[in-house]
Design a protein around this nucleic acid. Sequence first.
DNA 1: ACCATAATCCCCTATTTTGGGTGAATGAAA
DNA 2: TTTCATTCACCCAAAATAGGGGATTATGGT
Lengths: 206, 206
Amino acid sequence: MPIRLSLVEDDHLIREAFTDLLNNTEDFLVVSSYSNCEDYLRNLATDRPDVVLMDLELPRMGGVEGIERTKKLRPQTQLIVVTVYENDELVFKALCAGAGGYLTKNMPPSRLIEAIREIRQGGAPMSTNIARMVVASFQKNHHSPLTARETEVLERIAQGKSYTTIADELFVDKETIRTHIKNIYWKLEVHSKAEAIEKARKERLI
Amino acid sequence: MPIRLSLVEDDHLIREAFTDLLNNTEDFLVVSSYSNCEDYLRNLATDRPDVVLMDLELPRMGGVEGIERTKKLRPQTQLIVVTVYENDELVFKALCAGAGGYLTKNMPPSRLIEAIREIRQGGAPMSTNIARMVVASFQKNHHSPLTARETEVLERIAQGKSYTTIADELFVDKETIRTHIKNIYWKLEVHSKAEAIEKARKERLI
DNA sequence: ACCATAATCCCCTATTTTGGGTGAATGAAA
DNA sequence: TTTCATTCACCCAAAATAGGGGATTATGGT
């Protein structure tokens, strides 16, 4: 049984080039290709693709929403984003929405074929830069204004813990935690938990 | 100038096999290899490796701590984990600690060479399964007991926001948020924000 | 038509938490 | 020596929280 593929890509030249390439690959079958998400989603149930190659810049409904809806309608569908964008926010939105791979368009055509086989074998094909961004997202900023202790406290705040709980966990008095929090707020120039967590997450302090 | 490599691996057969392989590769120079983190860290400043291949299962100090200390002592050092473990927790701990790649030992030797070139070119070499785990970590559980609205509320709770703030953001009354929270607590069988956040994160409900 | 669920809102109570202010002792590092 | 990190203390008032009770509306499915 061939691997069923759908394409969603608004540039018809690329769409046709990909279709040709993939249809001439052993075991691959392009069952459909669309220039927009709406048409694609309408036919998802009848197309029954194993893997979808999705662009993100699309008219009306964007690719990220397209990914989300795909996963709701047909969770077993695997999606690979194929786009020119390598902007942080968009990459993570696409992955959170359910993309299983992310390729940028400056790749050799062979990479596309490789990626489809990779995702079917339990992998997560990504372009070099994307993989780096993804891994970097786990790592902390090494130029944090916060001390080790303050970071420890803020991490626990971000876990929703109360001052009292944190104090117990760190074997210090509640007043000590309060002092740390005051210093954290002063350093981050914020005045509440929510602001502190937001800023700390954004700057990868925690 | 060749790429300077250090190895940290307690099995001396593997260590020597890797050393041979890499020293016979164009542009690569294995400057040192150790069977434990302590010796490795002591010589880090004089070895000045560009890339370190690190095992995780090591006597005394573990690989994760070794990664952390490496990044503190010499932040420009790039580390690739080479191990048999593909346990969730260990993988994420290693990446959080600063690993820039993660390979499992069931790979062809050529993959090692490829990985070193990849990390030098701004990538993040990972084995198939690891890449999948990493990407999956961004995605939500599709069998959440929570409704869409409850999830929205819990996400904001996890951002440290107060009921009042959340109510304003969702254009509903504070009492509505309180009801949602009560239902969330009942469904997750918890009795506080901290417990709810912990459980929800663990089960990827948010 | 009926029932379950989701989403909305209201009231009451008691305790805890939070943010802000001010001050201070200790010890380690620069 | 002087800064910095960490620790603790006491005051205050406002806000937030958890738990209990109950209610209405709308929607989807059987």
